[in-house]
Design a protein around this nucleic acid. Sequence first.
DNA 1: ACAGACCGCGCC
DNA 2: AAAGGGCGCGGTCTGT
Length: 546
Amino acid sequence: MQRVDEHGDPGASPAVVADLAVAMGELEASEHPRWVWESAATDYAALLGAGVLVERSHDLALVEAALLGYAGRFGESSRLAAAAARLRNEPVPPDEPARPTATQPGLFDDTTPRPLDDAVAVHAAQCAQLASPDGPDAWEPAPVTAARLRLLAATDSACGLVAAEMGHDGVPWRIDVHDRLLTEALGPRPRHGGRPPRLQALAERIAALLDVPRLNPDSAAEITTAFRHAGILLTSTRSFALRRLDHPAIEPLLEYKALARLHAAHGWAWSDEWVRDGRFRPEYVPAGVVSGRWASRGGGALQIPRAVRAAVVADPGHVLVVADARQLEPRVLAALSVDAGLIDAARSGDLYDAMATEAFAGDRATAKIAILSAMYGGGTGGGSSAVALATFRRRYPRALGLVEAAARVGEAGGLVRSVLGRTCPYAGVAPAGTTSETDDVEAQALRRSRDRGRFTRNFVIQASAADWAGVLLAVLRGRLAGIDDAARLVFFQHDEVVVHAPQALAGEVAAAIDAAADEATRLVFGSTDVSFPMPATVVPDYAAAK
DNA sequence: ACAGACCGCGCC
DNA sequence: AAAGGGCGCGGTCTGT
């Protein structure tokens, strides 16, 4: 263990302790320092196992990743060993292949001496980079100051703590409720795998209606052939395309697809694999997505379908406090662009409603399409979304100007950053399937350029929204710790949090979420007129939240 | 037989 | 109605 100051300079010489978890627990209680470690994903997980919680950290791997991105150095390893080797101008050792966290050596079971000097050196270098950011030219929606980049580093580090704690605690999950939901939808669980009764019945009905014995509805090729024999040419077997067709097999096929999806992705096998002791325990990866959104490994944690959310039930005497930031991305666009009209709309609790009243003749759906098209790069065809986008351009010129500026930079091959300095990667190779032999080279280049523009256009918004959500999470974690250890974040999904808490604390938790949203807004956007409402509902189970 | 690409769909 | 951003995952299909 080594003490360092806020610039990363070491003070006294390293201390050797007999029991690291005990020593850290004592220091945490007496001094609540900012712990510097390679990665909460490995190091904090071990500490949590020993029952020690910490307040603050500096996550070398997460900060290294953010700083590498800021410097435009994508694809380089953010592991401590790699960062230390770069500092020493030595060859960078290859990353070990990813292993499940449980089997990774952490602070507590590594038999080799920890590279304490490496950690001290890399930390000091990161502090220096955070104090005077240095990176390639990039388009920024707001100047990325040292203060903003430091906030990004602190936020990613805090999110590392939240992710480790959520992974450790797990999401409350009632397998009996889950089983009941599945049985109601699919029929009883088949004993030896295979299709549940309702799926089998639907498959047979579809086969009969298309006159193809043993037709497999999961096979796009078989479905396409079967419909061709029935006189219908399919361009795709996606639900939205099928829905428009007129054939008696369509309705059971759509039903089959929905139920088959439930069975395959979140059915009994999923429950067997991912739920233990009444908790669903996925692994969260903070900033695992280029935009800084979280990713997850295993169990599809960020895609829990509405159909099974009733299985997320609070423990006896407890409740779930569920809150999502309403229309987060449009509000981020309003705050970044300082568009007077959009800021006006963002004063309202329902931004789309306000836009509709102001500019879309009261048509909320069209108002929503207009702003989503602006942020995602839609409305380029001649359809109704193009008309909506034209109205948006006229009424909210600065907002559209911001995303179009970001798109132009991307089309020209440049970099863009989020409000806190998260930086988009350079264009990679064209994804497979986006080229065809009939295209000439220029057409392919043009499409790549436009795809890139759509990506950077959205990146500015999505990544800045992820900045805000990360700060919210970091602030909320601190506020919850001030209420009671029993009030725990158990789920986070882009713009939504779920807190599991004793019933008596529900009101305090809801107030903490509200205050955390305000604080995040002030930290990220300063004194903006845009409000970021995050109303909480107190529910017994997740399905009751919306 | 196995690996990786592709598709489709759940979530935001 | 139409088709634009980001993911993870399971099934099929294809190439070796």
